[in-house]
Computed example of a mutant assay.
Amino acid sequence: MNWPLQEQQDRLNQVVEEALRAGPQVITANGEETAVVVSIEEYRRLQSPSDTLADFLMDSPLRRSGIRIERDQALERALDL
């Protein structure tokens, strides 16, 4: 749902309640989206550090799939420039 900024001074309580009930609420100014009101839980989830690439790869369902990826062990590689 979009909320024009000029209406927010009187309706902030409703915007916050709607963010808690239905999810992020978009604030508009002059017809353009300018801000979003989210619940504190959503904000904290967005702020928490995400897993590292190593964590992602270690948790991958392909980890124990038996797929073998081999790299060319040659030190030199021919390049077409």
Results as ranks from 00 to 15, higher is better:
Ala19Arg: 00
Ala74Trp: 07
Leu46Met: 12
Ile69Asn: 12
Asn13Glu: 13
Ile40Asp: 09
Leu57Trp: 07
Val16Pro: 00
Ser48Thr: 13
Arg45Ile: 03
Val37Ile: 14
Gln6Met: 03
Asn2Lys: 13
Ser39Ala: 00
Arg45His: 13
Leu62Ile: 11
Asp10Gln: 11
Asn30Leu: 12
Pro49Arg: 11
Leu79Ile: 08
Arg77Asp: 05
Ser65Met: 14
Val15Met: 05
Gln8Ala: 13
Met58Asn: 15
Val38Pro: 00
Pro24Ser: 07
Met58Thr: 10
Arg63Ile: 05
Asp51Ile: 03
Gly23Pro: 03
Asp55Asn: 11
Ile69Val: 14
Gly31Met: 03
Ile40Trp: 08
Val38His: 00
Glu32Tyr: 15
Ala29His: 11
Thr28Ser: 15
Arg11Ile: 03
Gln47Cys: 08
Leu62Gly: 06
Glu7Leu: 04
Val26Gln: 01
Leu53Val: 12
Ser65Gln: 12
Glu7Asn: 12
Arg77Phe: 08
Thr28Cys: 15
Ala54Met: 04
Ile69Gln: 14
Val15His: 01
Ala19Thr: 02
Asn2Ser: 09
Glu76Pro: 02
Gln47Arg: 09
Thr28Phe: 11
Ile67Trp: 14
Ile67Asp: 12
Asp72His: 15
Ser39Asn: 00
Arg11Asp: 05
Val15Gln: 02
Gly23Thr: 06
Asp72Cys: 15
Leu62Phe: 15
Asp59Ser: 11
Ala35Leu: 07
Gly66Cys: 06
Leu79His: 09
Arg44Gln: 13
Gly66Gln: 05
Val15Ser: 05
Val37Trp: 02
Ser48Gln: 14
Asn30Arg: 14
Thr52Glu: 08
Thr52Arg: 10
Thr34Met: 13
Asp72Thr: 15
Arg63Gln: 08
Gln6Val: 02
